[in-house]
Amino acid sequence: MIIRRRSLFAGAFALASLGGFAPSHAQDVYPSRQITLILPAAAGGPTDTVSRLIAESMSRTLGQTVIVENMGGAGGTVGMARLAKSAPDGYTIGVWHIAQATAPAMYDSLKYDVLKDFDAIGRITDVPMTLTSKAALDIKTLPDLLAWIKAKKDEVTYGHAGVGTASHLCMLMLQKELGVTLKGVGYRGTGPAMNDLLGGQFDLMCDQTTNTTNQIKEGKIKGYAVTVTQRLAVLPDLPTLDQSGLKGFDVSAWHAVWAPKGLPKDVSDKLVAALKASLKDPKVIERFAALGTAPVPDEQATPAALMMKLQQEVPKWAETIKAFGIKGN
């Protein structure tokens, strides 16, 4: 009888021990808690829109909430520095655009290496841009606008989301093509810049369709051209700069998901799968289309494809930035 009681006690202890370990093991399965998505730009801008759409969709796939944390400043380098220093456990990721490729040329004392300090997850979308003006600008056509810019030169003002951001790069390219130097006004993100464009505080802005499409349609700002080589179905009346005398002009803001270097493969695989699922999400596709963009093809939403893109873009933009002598320091 004693032996039996001891056996039962030992069996009960073993089961209790196993039961005690089970919840701990389950908690280690990624993801077991909320994920923070760092966005190195102010709320209300185009990349904010893209980030929130992707975060919401990825949340459903991962089964955990993905919270967007805006952290603008210094052309996005403040937020990306924070991401680079975060633990590589999948609970802190980030979304950033073309400015990831321009940062090395823009900042002499960059606190991270864009090619070595991040794990790529995949591209999201390549957002076209539009050349716009304040509503009060009394110019109706693109040829007239370009002639006005050439005549007025540094009397013309333009707003941008910060040195080295997509909106800034677009205007640099336009100035290069026209052979002029305009007066730039920098902001901590495109959201605040758009507010001042709506208020007529400066003349021009080159910004992503995710931020300008509705404003143009509602007549709150004027749209003159798109910066890619094909017209956009969502803004069919706008010509391309390429077909309007600026041959070869082609600028878009590619967006991507990043993580700190050293992500475990199983965690990376889950994030890549969640990203791919979000790019097939009907809600995301519909919303992107309404804003003049679309998800990248499936083969571009991979770590390898994103790293290849970054490796191509870094030297390309370094040349342009060097030509203008622009620094964000």
Rank of each mutant, 00 (worst) to 15 (best):
I124S: 02
T209W: 15
T213H: 07
L241C: 01
D117C: 12
Y224F: 09
H25C: 15
A193Y: 07
L18P: 01
M173D: 07
D237M: 08
D117I: 12
T227L: 12
S32Y: 06
V284M: 03
G122T: 06
E313C: 06
I321H: 02
A10H: 08
G63E: 05
M1F: 14
E177I: 00
K283F: 15
D203C: 12
G200K: 11
P31S: 13
A301G: 08
A120K: 03
I93L: 04
K270S: 04
F324G: 05
R123V: 09
V226C: 07
T49S: 12
A193I: 10
V180N: 11
A256L: 14
G159E: 03
G191R: 06
T49P: 01
R5S: 13
L131H: 03
V29T: 11
L142G: 01
I93G: 01
A259L: 03
A136K: 13
G19A: 15
V114P: 05
A14P: 07
K283L: 12
I149H: 04
N329L: 08
T320Y: 05
T213Q: 02
T320G: 00
A274D: 08
I35T: 03
P282T: 14
A225I: 03
E313H: 11
A318G: 10
V234P: 09
S51W: 08
I326N: 04
G75Q: 06
W258S: 11
V284D: 01
V68A: 10
P264T: 00
K327I: 04
W258R: 13
A147L: 10
G122E: 07
Y224W: 05
K270D: 06
E56T: 13
I124Y: 01
D28R: 09
L235I: 03
Q27H: 09
Y107R: 10
A42H: 13
A101V: 14
G199C: 15
A294G: 00
A193S: 04
D250V: 00
P239L: 09
G45S: 05
M194S: 00
Q312T: 02
R5F: 12
P23E: 06
G292M: 05
I221D: 00
G219D: 04
G328W: 02
V50E: 09
M1E: 13
A42V: 03
G63T: 13
Q64N: 09
T141S: 14
